[in-house]
């Protein structure tokens, strides 16, 4: 699988530059945005595996806004929020809205790399599971069609055979006539 495609959003150009450099060094594919609105345009038109966004940003859209826009577009994209002042309430609110993680500034890069690695492993597992399911669905669908057709054919043949049995066991009728009637039943379908 390709490495993660990450969008970094922060209004502080220094943080942005630093993050970009460090993440590129790890061979992640990086895009940056300087505020929520810019991020919103990028998210609307592109696919990202991970969004790394500052919580407090000036302008119309803050980190929570970015989080909501991301989840609305694709719930599989993971969002990590970064904040200067960690507060439990903010963290809980963010996680409830679907953020995977919450990091405090100054960013501990080792920690960030570990979290990204974890997301990468998770994505790989999810992809494997998706592939398996896809294969299972196709097999199940085809097997289902075959079995259901057989089921109907067998039911039809069974009822035909029991009619033949009935005809053949009718004592009142002459035996050659019985055979003729039985053959009629057999060719009837």
């Amino acid at each position: 699988m390709k490495d993660l495609k990450i969008l970094v959003v922060d209004d502080d150009p220094i943080t942005l530059l630093l993050l970009e450099k460090r993440l590129k060094a790890e061979e992640y594919e990086i895009k940056t945005a300087r505020n929520g609105t810019e991020a919103f345009d990028l998210i609307s038109n592109n696919h990202y595996d991970v969004i790394l966004t500052d919580l407090k940003m000036p302008g119309g859209m803050d980190g929570i806004g970015v989080l909501e826009a991301t989840k609305a577009k694709n719930s599989r994209t993971e969002v990590i929020l970064i904040t200067a002042y960690a507060s439990v309430d903010n963290a809980v609110a963010a996680i409830q809205k679907g953020a995977v993680d919450y990091l405090q500034k100054p960013i501990n890069f080792d920690e960030l790399m570990l979290r990204l690695q974890r997301i990468k492993n998770m994505k790989k597992l999810v992809k494997d599971a998706d592939d398996l399911r896809e294969a299972m669905d196709i097999t199940e669908f085809n097997a289902g069609q075959t079995i259901q057709n057989l089921e109907l054919t067998v039911a039809q043949l069974q009822s035909q055979l029991s009619e033949v049995e009935n005809v053949l066991s009718q004592k009142g009728i002459d035996s050659s006539e019985r055979v003729r009637l039985a053959l009629d039943r057999l060719v009837a379908v």
């Binding site: 199940e140 669908f141 097997a143 289902g144 079995i147 259901q148 057989l150 089921e151 109907l152 067998v154 039911a155």
Partner: peptide, 14 residues
């Protein structure tokens, strides 16, 4: 979808 009642329960009609 991949199950069958043939020889399992003749009381049902497919």
């Amino acid at each position: 979808s991949t199950e069958s009642l043939t020889d399992i329960c003749p009381r049902f009609e497919p």
